[in-house]
Design a protein around this nucleic acid. Sequence first.
DNA 1: ATAAACTTTCAAAATATTTTGAAAGTTTAA
DNA 2: TTAAACTTTCAAAATATTTTGAAAGTTTAT
Lengths: 168, 168
Amino acid sequence: MELAEGRQKFIEAWGKLGSEWGINRTMAQVHALLLVSPEALTTEEIMAQLSISRGNANMTLRDLIGWGLIEKQHRAGERKEYFYAEKDVWLIARQVAQERKKRELDPVLKVLNELGNVKGDEKDPKYKTFKKSVTDINKLAKNVDRTLTTMVKAEESWFWGSIFKIFK
Amino acid sequence: MELAEGRQKFIEAWGKLGSEWGINRTMAQVHALLLVSPEALTTEEIMAQLSISRGNANMTLRDLIGWGLIEKQHRAGERKEYFYAEKDVWLIARQVAQERKKRELDPVLKVLNELGNVKGDEKDPKYKTFKKSVTDINKLAKNVDRTLTTMVKAEESWFWGSIFKIFK
DNA sequence: ATAAACTTTCAAAATATTTTGAAAGTTTAA
DNA sequence: TTAAACTTTCAAAATATTTTGAAAGTTTAT
């Protein structure tokens, strides 16, 4: 397979995976494009390569910066802004884990904790089932939370090394 | 907080989390409703409790069965079908992990492996950057894959126990 | 101060996803 | 049979999300 075709396939696959996991397809594609670009790109280049509008490119790039996945670069003597993606995949994974934890898991944990205070009759099957499901999900979510927190702080080789030492 | 309010909050929170993670909001809500229901429910009851149409309920319930999260139950002398949710949260988590791995991660791993065969000039920065990103993502994805495979086979207490023994 | 170069905004349009509900299909009891 | 009870289907409608692009805004050089 040729490089150009490979790049295209990569961008498509990344976009598809993103959309299946609740991340805007275009955002994932712009990120993929920057990941395979050795040099920083301008908005114009990104628009052209992915056939997207200026507005879409601008918003998407802003979001990616908000996720901590890309950065703006300036070049001496030039007005244009260039965008460059962090290439360290473990750093990217940790960044995504951290952001999603903050935006999505933490709010749910908050609700689950509140739901621990729901009062009711211990004899009532409805109450018992509610309690059990909420408590069990809360425990699971806390374990996931704790693991993500560890991951976000960890070195890649240490993290996987530790995991596979046990999961051999 | 009262039970009725708690149930409502739980269903909403679960629906929101689902939609953020690429799972249809209604599907997550129906699942949440069944999770807090001690008894199996009929389509009619689910339609009423969540104010959704018959068609929507039917499709959603079919999907949930496809995910292995609920089952149909029949009662002697009754024509109606009842739906009951598995309540073991660890089993649910493993089931979801297994399905999403199969539907989403495995296809991407296949593409990433194919992209390992892309030919090019080792001196070309474009080629080098492409190779590095694809290779690194592939390694990460394989580690995730391996961890999920272990998780899907594991007992809950063993799994978390092992993780936290190291991540203390 | 002006204007060219560039970026941002956001209402409207396009697209994608979800939901509806009536009709068609199926099963069971009599 | 037949008809009541129940389930499934799917085209159309509703809703939600994404994208567009022209206008407004900003920055810089002169």
